[in-house]
Structures are given as C-alpha cells and as structure tokens.
C-alpha cells in the first residue's frame, strides 16, 4: 500500500497509468456504446472521416472505428497471453538456473543464450511462414511470441535468484528442513515478485509490438483483425502512397500509446521497488 502511494507521487507513473486506463476504456467500455459485432461494408473504399464514421472507412468500405476497437482487443489479448507465457517460462527457468547452479545452471543458461542469439523476429517469421495461412490463429501467434520471448526475463531472474540463494534466510530455511521447491516458491520467489511483475509488464508490451510487427508484414492472424493486420491492409492497398492518413495513423498511435504507457509504468515502478532490491 505504501509502495502504491509512492507510485502515485511519480508523474511518470500517473501519466503512464492514465494512458493505459484510456486504452483499456476504449477496448472494454466503448464497445457497450458502439456496436463492433459486425465487420461489414458501410460505404465506399477510403471514405474520409465524417460525423457518422469518425475515422473514415478502409479499402473495403468498413468502419475504421470498429476495426480499430476489435484490433485493439486482439492486440491486448495477444500481449497478455504472450506476456504470461514468456513471464512464467522465463521466471521458472531463471529461478531454477540461479538456485540450482552447477550443471543445471550451465545447461539452462546455454539454452537461454541460444535463444538470445537468434533474433526473435526472425524466429517468428520462420515459424509463422511454416505454419501457413490456414492455421495462423491469434492464439497460436501469441503462444509463439510467448515461447520465443522469455529469454530476457530468464536472464534477469537468474541473476536475482542466485543472489538471494546465498542469503541467510535460505540457510535458516534449510535448517528448518525445507526442501528445494519450497525454498524456491516461499523464500526466493516472493523477493522477486516486484521484479517479475515489472518484467511481465514489459513483456506484454513486447508481445503487442511483436504481433504488430509480424502482422504488418503479412504473417499475422487470418481469423481476426489486429492492429498489425490493419496496418498490413493499409500498406497493401495503397493507403500510404495515396495519403489516406486515417488508414495508418490511428492504429500506429494506439500501438505507440500502449507501448509507451506500459514502459512508463515499468520505469516508474523500477524507481520505487528497486531501492530495496539493490540493498
């Protein structure tokens, strides 16, 4: 609670959290007032914004507000799922590697380094291409992003976990007869909670950006719209060359807002949580 009060004193956090709340509001509250259930043609291709369709229409004459809201929800879903998978996987691998040390640490660290060396985007492109058009669902994309994006969290958690391992309270827990798993979950993980949470936030943001990136180059989900597919459609249908700003600026703006707000939240938390960690 005290930590939260301190967070509220940071203008960076207040701005980031407000921006993110706005994004959530758009994704989950606005649809109650604005019907987004139908994606149908309502006018001519690239009709300019008007009183009825605030952000204009796309190359098929569909309402951009509907597309963007649906896309936003997809992107948040991908970010959350990918973030959860990458955080859990990375935390688990990092915890075990740091705590166990020795051969297990060597093997897990080698694995982590292997994944670090291979650029995530290349891996994503390769996997997405090999799956082909038919099977590329939103969930699958999220899982792929999650499975390739855990390296960063694994490395940072490993460092923390091996530092905490040598603390006295771990020795005392051993003298209390606690086993390895209990020590990991009860005596190490809680000390990393704030840390893992920050990693999680950044991974959500990274997941959303990764999805946008591969969708934009045409390897995105085929079963729904996402912010990335909107950009891809705009790119493929001459919006850039013909100057239809409303085809790409709003989607780009939303992606930047999400990434920026999560980044600000993370950075401000770092300032509040970490002084204790560094001690």
């Amino acid at each position: 609670m005290k930590l939260f009060k301190n967070l509220l004193k940071s203008p960076m956090f207040v701005f980031g959290a407000s921006l993110f709340s706005l994004v959530l509001f758009a994704a989950f509250v606005v649809p109650f007032f604005y019907d987004i259930s139908q994606v149908t043609r309502v006018g001519n291709p690239y009709d300019a914004p008007s009183g009825k369709y605030l952000l204009g229409l796309d190359h098929l004459g569909r309402d951009y507000v509907v597309l963007l809201l649906r896309g936003l929800r997809s992107s948040l879903y991908v970010g959350l799922l990918a973030g959860v998978i990458a955080t859990v996987l990375g935390t688990l691998i990092g915890l075990i590697a740091g705590f166990k040390g020795g051969l297990i640490d060597d093997v897990l660290s080698a694995l982590t380094n292997l994944f670090v060396v291979i650029p995530q985007l290349v891996l994503l492109i390769l996997i997405s291409t090999s799956i082909g058009e038919s099977g590329r669902s939103l969930t699958l994309i999220a899982v792929i992003i999650g499975l390739t994006g855990w390296t960063w969290s694994a490395r940072s958690v490993r460092a923390q976990s091996s530092a905490i391992k040598s603390k006295d309270h771990i020795s005392l827990a051993r003298l209390n007869g606690d086993g390895g798993i209990r020590i990991l979950l009860v005596h190490i993980l809680p000390y990393l909670f704030s840390y893992v949470f920050m990693v999680f936030i950044i991974l959500i943001s990274a997941g959303i950006l990764s999805e946008s990136a591969i969708s934009m180059i045409g390897l995105g989900p085929v079963d729904t719209q996402s912010l990335g597919t909107i950009l891809n459609d705009a790119k493929n249908n001459g919006a850039l060359t013909d100057g239809y700003w409303y085809a790409f600026l709003p989607a780009t703006g939303i992606i930047i807002s999400i990434a920026l707000s999560l980044y600000l939240i993370n950075t401000s938390m770092d300032g509040v949580f970490n002084p204790r960690m560094r001690k």
Partner: peptide, 29 residues
C-alpha cells in the same frame, strides 16, 4: 544440531510474520 547466525535481519523471510517463521522450525521434525 542447530545454528544461530550473525545477522539477525537477513535471517528471516520478510514476507511472513515472525511467529509463523518460528513455527516453521518444526518442519525439521
């Protein structure tokens, strides 16, 4: 055979009450 360590502050897990940690000592039995 049990032990008392040097630095009392770093010996307890800060996320649990003292009492619960004293009770946790029975885990060795």
């Amino acid at each position: 055979v049990q032990s008392v360590f040097q630095d009392p502050f770093s010996c307890f897990n800060q996320f649990f009450t003292i009492r619960s940690q004293l009770k946790a000592a029975f885990g060795i039995y």
